[in-house]
């Protein structure tokens, strides 16, 4: 598909879903009452606007990180979970809840970012100078396992059932009740992380030919790795720190867009950021529309909606391979 057209379409879709995210919910708030004294406007201004901004930001962060990691690892199965940053950020947040009995967003965010940055530095240290994707995957997987085990340990020693409930609630991932405080906390990190990741396009293209050929084309693999570790750490770390773990976006979005952008990894980056925002905004609007007072958790909904969709996609791919 023509690239400018695709970008315009995706941007329009993001704008549409962003507006939709302000309108949709248990109480519908039509645009006609926006910026008026109508009490429903405050639902938009105080609850839905920060939520929509966060949905856009974390969707973009997860989609872009997924596209970068698939390009870097030359593996269509890679997603942000591979580098272990999501699990580490989750570990940080859980530690704050259990050890410091924290429930203030700032403390939980700080702990999650600290853990994400710590795991990032560890990852850089473990894979440093190896210049190799295998070392990178191994280091990331080990970090993810360690973070998972420590999180499970912390849950098991949680002082009371309320803390356990809070942890599980948090881990499931949601944009519910997020305020501008969270937007202010997370957006700078997500913006810097995404900017760093966008600088990897050339290296990702060169890596299509393998590591030796990429280096022969003047690509500094150690620097690329550092950009990815920092970018993914900041963008995904900050996302997880405010919403909990939202899976699937980084895996599925690059897959959906690759047939439209062509296989060149750099061509997939910007569309994946926009596509991630589209997916999260759409899913977050949908979860509000379910029956009953409670919402389905965004992380849960993403997996529930994403899995059958992904299977259909796989089936289609296999059919086209057979024919």
């Amino acid at each position: 598909m023509n690239r400018p057209l695709l970008l315009i379409l995706l941007t329009a879709l993001v704008a549409l879903l962003f507006a939709g995210s302000l309108v949709a919910g248990k109480i519908w708030v039509p645009p006609s009452v926006w910026f008026t004294g109508d009490p429903r406007w405050w639902i938009v201004a105080e609850l839905r606007l920060p939520r929509a901004i966060l949905g856009l930001a974390i969707g973009a962060a997860l989609g872009l990180t997924g596209a970068v990691l698939q390009g870097y690892l030359r593996n269509p199965l890679a997603d942000p979970a591979v580098v272990g940053v999501s699990s580490s950020a989750a570990l940080g947040a859980v530690a704050a809840i259990v050890v410091f009995a924290a429930n203030a967003p700032l403390v939980i965010f700080g702990a999650a970012m600290l853990a994400a940055c710590g795991s990032m530095l560890l990852l850089a240290g473990l894979a440093w100078r190896a210049d190799s994707q295998v070392a990178f995957i191994l280091a990331g997987t080990v970090l993810a396992s360690l973070a998972g085990a420590l999180t499970a340990f912390l849950i098991s020693i949680a002082p009371n059932p309320f803390a356990t409930a809070e942890i599980i609630d948090w881990i499931m991932g949601a944009l519910t009740d997020r305020s501008f405080a969270e937007v202010q906390l997370a957006s700078p990190f997500i913006a810097i992380g995404c900017a760093l990741l966008l600088f990897t396009g050339r290296a990702l293209d060169a890596l299509t030919l393998g590591e030796a050929a990429a280096r022969s084309l003047g690509v500094r693999l150690a620097r690329t790795q550092l950009l990815i570790v920092l970018g993914a750490g900041l963008a995904v770390g900050a996302s997880v720190a405010v919403t909990g773990v939202v899976g699937f976006v980084g895996l599925i979005v690059p897959h959906l867009l690759r047939p439209l952008t062509g296989a060149k990894p750099s061509a997939l980056l910007l569309p994946s950021a926009l596509g991630g925002a589209v997916l999260v905004l759409a899913a977050d609007s949908l979860v509000r529309l379910g029956p009953g007072a409670a919402e389905i958790r965004l992380g849960v909904a993403m997996a529930l909606l994403g899995t059958p969709f992904f299977f259909l996609l796989l089936l289609k791919m296999r059919r086209s391979a057979w024919s």
Binding site: T208, L209, G210, A212, A213
Partner: peptide, 15 residues
Amino acid sequence: IGYLPQDPIVHWNLA
């Protein structure tokens, strides 16, 4: 210096 590696790898189906 142009370098042509031993394995003719192309990881993605580029045109």
